[in-house]
């Protein structure tokens, strides 16, 4: 159990973090969301033992991290840009990190195959890190964060800079980590966090503004669910059908070529599953359902404005 209690951090006179408290259980994945400067990085750096808090505490199974630096051996941290010694091979790097985390050579040897499997690095073990692609470097970054089998794994923007195929692979890796470790992920992408995390923490102006599932956060922010839906069919007919639906608050049509119709719809509350079922029943061939890209910002702004009020 990771317990964060009243965490406060000042940079000079500026309060980057104020009275942030939350708990994280083993096997739980939580997402940390916030705009730039909200306090996400400060939170992660304190959790990783990189920064000392001005007040408050991070406790791992009841022991305070600030007074027990040896607890860093129970934490794994991947920064947005993976920290790697690029002249080393993958395994020699992981061995080095294992030793820095206090592991014996026997333990490292026993742990390496599982880490290689979890981070999906098979076949790259003896490759020099500097010659790997960005996606594989990110995996090596994850591998170094878990080589010592930590209790808490902290991943700062784990999918940034990855291509779509690598993002899918990374989701699998993160999900796999969540089976054995407590995982905290920082991200700007709500849809990514909602797919991977059990719970979301929203940070704004250094304070914990809200926490819960994506639906709970939407309800709290007063934000309606929105989707961009692409179907096979006539644009006018699809727009007319959407206009008549009682679930829909507003519709914005978007032209798509080759017999496809597309619209941005907003519904009251979260009725996404019911709406999609009805569209399919109405005979429109569902081709693509997307989250609008600006949703996160709107939820953030809604929640932070509520907090300020």
């Amino acid at each position: 159990m990771i317990q964060v209690r009243d965490l406060t951090r000042y940079y000079g006179e500026f309060a980057a973090l104020q009275d942030v408290s939350f708990e994280l259980k083993e096997g739980e994945i939580i997402g940390l969301l916030g705009l730039n400067g909200a306090g996400k990085s400060t939170t992660l750096m304190i959790l990783a033992g990189l920064l000392a808090p001005s007040s408050g505490s991070v406790q791992i199974d009841g022991t305070d991290l600030a007074n027990h630096p040896e607890l860093r051996a129970r934490i794994g941290f991947l920064t947005e840009s993976p920290p790697l010694y690029t002249e080393m091979t993958v395994t020699s790097f992981l061995r080095h990190i294992g030793r820095m985390k206090g592991m014996s050579n026997d333990k490292i040897n026993a742990r390496l195959p599982e880490v290689i499997r979890l981070a999906d690095l098979a076949g790259r073990e003896h490759q020099v890190i500097g010659t790997l692609s960005h996606g594989y470097k990110k995996r090596v970054g994850i591998a170094q964060a878990i080589i010592h089998d930590p209790k808490l794994v902290i991943l700062d923007e784990p999918i940034s800079g990855l291509d779509p195929a690598q993002i899918v692979e990374m989701r699998k890796v993160v999900k796999g980590l969540g089976e054995k470790h407590a995982v905290i992920i920082s991200s700007h992408i709500l849809s990514e966090v909602s797919q991977t995390c059990d719970r979301i923490l929203v940070i704004g102006n250094g304070r914990l503004v809200a926490q819960g599932t994506e639906a709970e956060l939407m309800a709290r922010s007063g934000e309606n669910a929105r989707l961009v839906i692409t179907v096979r069919g006539d644009q006018a007919a699809f727009t007319e059908w959407l206009d008549k639906s009682e679930r829909i608050v507003s519709v914005v049509s978007k032209d798509v070529a080759d017999g496809l119709a597309r619209a941005l719809v907003e519904m009251e509350g979260d009725q996404r599953e019911d709406l999609l079922l009805e569209i399919a029943k109405a005979g429109f061939g569902l081709r693509l359902v997307e989250d609008p890209q600006d949703e996160l910002e709107e939820i953030f702004l809604g929640l932070t404005h509520q907090e300020a009020a």
Binding site: E70, P83, Y85, I97, M100
Partner: peptide
């Protein structure tokens, strides 16, 4: 290079 994170989060 950002690798000081590795040193300072180690034991």
């Amino acid at each position: 290079l950002g690798t000081e994170v590795l040193l300072r989060t180690s034991i």
